[in-house]
Design a protein around this nucleic acid. Structure first.
Length: 424
RNA sequence: GUGGGCGUAGCUCAGUUGGCAGAGUGCAGGAUUGUGAUUCCUGUUGUCGCGGGUUCGACCCCCGUCGCUCACCCCA
């Protein structure tokens, strides 16, 4: 058993038992996004390493130690995408969707980060990404949150998530604040733990988010980012919160909310839950106006978010709010030499008559008993029986597996009509 | 990268101060020569994660290793 090849650590199979839930969630997501006029964009999973280094930030953990990077045959360094924003923006710039245009886009697919797996954190994980370009005003910030609000409600998860909100200001404003913050923490460095001392040089804003209770006091007395924001940033943030209030979306301002990626500015947000242990962030995002200029040299506006699908599914597994599709509605049992071909032919006629009918034909053989067991296990509503007796009499037998309707013998045409009335 | 817990049948898990490897479930067959889900009977599944050591003897003790899992870090 140990010799058989296993999946790569942190990369999981979604088994048939789980796929109906995934499909239901995916359908709900498409429904909500299309209600707001968003278009799907499909992007490569591999990009040039340089793209991620330049957009995410050279000194972030993702770039420093979590990327799946390898050399192509021509010696060029390539990387399995650790997130979607950079690739989406790259594609949009490359194909002239930017700048000076507005777009509302979404994508869905696997991302890769070489981290130690734990609950809600995997090396391959599926993200839904939503990105919008060309809209500087606070209304698009609010629209993204409205989309999520609507999605939570459709999924029956509204009570399980909380919206936290903050503004990081512009890159320039944050740089000034960052300097002040580093100075402050340096003068209090004897009160910092090892992790925080390390962050002082990598990502000092992260210290504010520390889980160490010993740091509560130092953090509480630290300079507050909001005081360093310019008039424009403050007005933008106020407008966003005002819109949310009037649209009836509950939120909490979290002045210590700091996104991990370098490119964020102004509005940032996280939807968090208490139910997933340490990985409580299910959906997060923010504005990244500066990244467009960074990658293209031209100014622009962008805001988006990403949602972790495995985390969403983990939340959903405790619920029972979605109607899941059955893989099989009707199961056809064939018994006896004379019944094999006629059973198969009838199945095709039935599929012609009801194209979306989910009809499975038993080909495993076996006794009546075992075929009925499989019919029952398939979850089908009805079993169709084609046996030698039926063939001799020119009929098809139909038996309900979910109630006490009993069994009936019908001609082919009657049987087709019977199922048409039920499923067409 | 660091630390804790756990690896026994397809699945969920018992097990013994070191002495023939178990149950439930699933699967197959039968009771019912053509009828599932309930009931009863019978049968079936193992390199006890892998490698080494100690021992007359190791699923059990020791060392190493791999995997899973949870937490730190970080993030969706």
């Amino acid at each position: 058993m140990a010799k058989t090849i296993q999946a790569i650590r942190g990369m999981h199979d979604v088994l048939p038992e789980q796929t109906p839930l995934w499909q239901a969630v995916e359908a709900t997501i498409r429904e909500v996004l299309s209600a707001y006029g968003y278009s799907e964009i499909r992007l490569p999973i591999v990009e040039k390493t340089e793209l991620f280094k330049r957009s995410i930030g050279e000194v972030t953990d993702i770039v420093e130690k979590e990327m799946y990077t390898f050399d192509d045959r021509n010696g060029e360094s390539l990387t399995l995408r650790p997130e979607g924003t950079a690739g989406c923006l790259r594609a949009s710039l490359e194909h002239g969707l930017l700048p000076n245009q507005s777009h509302r886009l979404w994508y869905y697919g696997p991302m890769y980060r070489h981290e130690r797996p734990q609950k809600g954190r995997y090396r391959q994980f599926i993200q839904l990404g939503v990105e919008t370009y060309g809209m500087p005003g606070p209304e698009i910030d609010a629209e993204l949150l409205l989309i999520m609000e609507r999605l939570w409600q459709k999924l029956g998860l509204r009570a399980h998530v909380r919206l936290e909100l903050n503004s990081l200001g512009t890159l320039a404003e944050r740089a000034v604040y960052r300097e002040q913050l580093v100075t402050y923490f340096e003068t209090h460095s004897q009160q910092l733990d090892d992790d925080s001392k390390r962050r002082l040089h990598t990502n000092p804003l992260r210290i504010l988010d520390s889980k160490n209770p010993a740091l509560t006091e130092v953090i509480a007395n630290a300079p507050v980012l909001f005081d360093y924001l310019g008039e424009d940033s403050k007005a933008h943030f106020t407008a966003v919160t005002d819109l949310l209030t009037h649209l009836g979306i509950a939120y909490q301002i979290n002045p210590r909310l700091v996104r991990g990626l370098d490119y964020y500015s102004k509005t940032v947000f996280e939807w968090v839950t208490e139910q997933l242990g340490a990985q409580g962030t299910v959906c997060a995002g923010g504005r990244y106006d500066g990244l467009i200029e960074q990658l293209s040299g031209k100014t622009g506006h962008a805001i988006g978010f990403a949602m972790g699908m495995e985390r969403l599914l983990a939340l959903l597994e405790n619920q029972n709010t979605l109607a899941l599709a059955k893989p099989v509605q009707v199961y056809l049992v064939r018994v006896g030499e004379q019944a094999q071909r006629p059973g198969l032919y009838f199945a095709e006629r039935l599929r012609d008559a009801i194209p979306h009918l989910k009809l499975q034909v038993n080909m495993e053989g076996g006794s009546f008993k075992s075929q009925f067991k499989k019919a029952d296990k398939s979850g089908a509503d009805y079993a169709i029986i084609v046996g030698d007796d039926e063939v001799a009499q020119g009929v098809i037998s139909i038996k309900s597996l979910r109630d006490e309707q009993g069994q009936r013998a019908l001609t082919d045409a009657e049987a087709i009509r019977f199922f048409q009335q039920l499923y067409l």
